[in-house]
């Protein structure tokens, strides 16, 4: 059960009040009639599925009914920020990677879903995060 900060209601609300609406920042092709079938197919059907930072569109359906964006870690479910429609995220996989390089510390600790801490698993995890 997430606890989500609605940037319009300006407070945290229970997940029950929200609906997820998939990947954020999808761009509907500006001129649908003149885009290729592949471009249109990509827009319709293809979505990112990262292990890590994901920007998602949510709606505060039982509440202000506003759509907004959530930056969420898909492995430990941490919500790193929420921001209004039309705004850009201040935290992305790239900014986090840069922070990690600077501090020498792994930014997202905990929340690993795999178990059995064999060295190869560790390697897999590190790889996925890089």
């Amino acid at each position: 059960m997430f606890h989500i900060y609605c940037p319009y209601c300006e407070e945290h609300r229970e997940e029950e009040e929200f609906h997820p609406r998939g990947q954020a920042h999808l761009q509907r092709p500006a001129d649908p009639e003149n885009c290729s079938d592949k471009e249109w197919g990509d827009y319709l059907f293809f979505r990112d599925n990262p292990r890590g930072i994901h920007h998602e569109l949510w709606v505060h359906s039982v509440g202000c009914r506003k759509f907004f964006n959530i930056t969420r870690h898909t492995a430990n479910y941490e919500i790193l920020e929420t921001y209004k429609m039309g705004e850009r995220p201040s935290i992305t996989a790239e900014t986090l990677a840069a922070d990690e390089r600077q501090s020498g510390v792994q930014a997202a600790s905990g929340g690993w879903q795999t178990v059995g801490a064999r060295p190869e698993d560790e390697a897999l995890n590190t790889e996925a995060r890089a």
């Binding site: 905990g110 929340g111 690993w112 178990v115």
Partner: peptide, 21 residues
């Protein structure tokens, strides 16, 4: 339950909770 992996401690001879926000 949170998905955080516990940490083994030799001095305790047991696992203790990992970091949970």
């Amino acid at each position: 339950h949170t998905g955080t992996r516990p940490v083994w401690r030799d001095d305790v001879l047991g696992f203790v909770p990992g970091d949970v926000k």
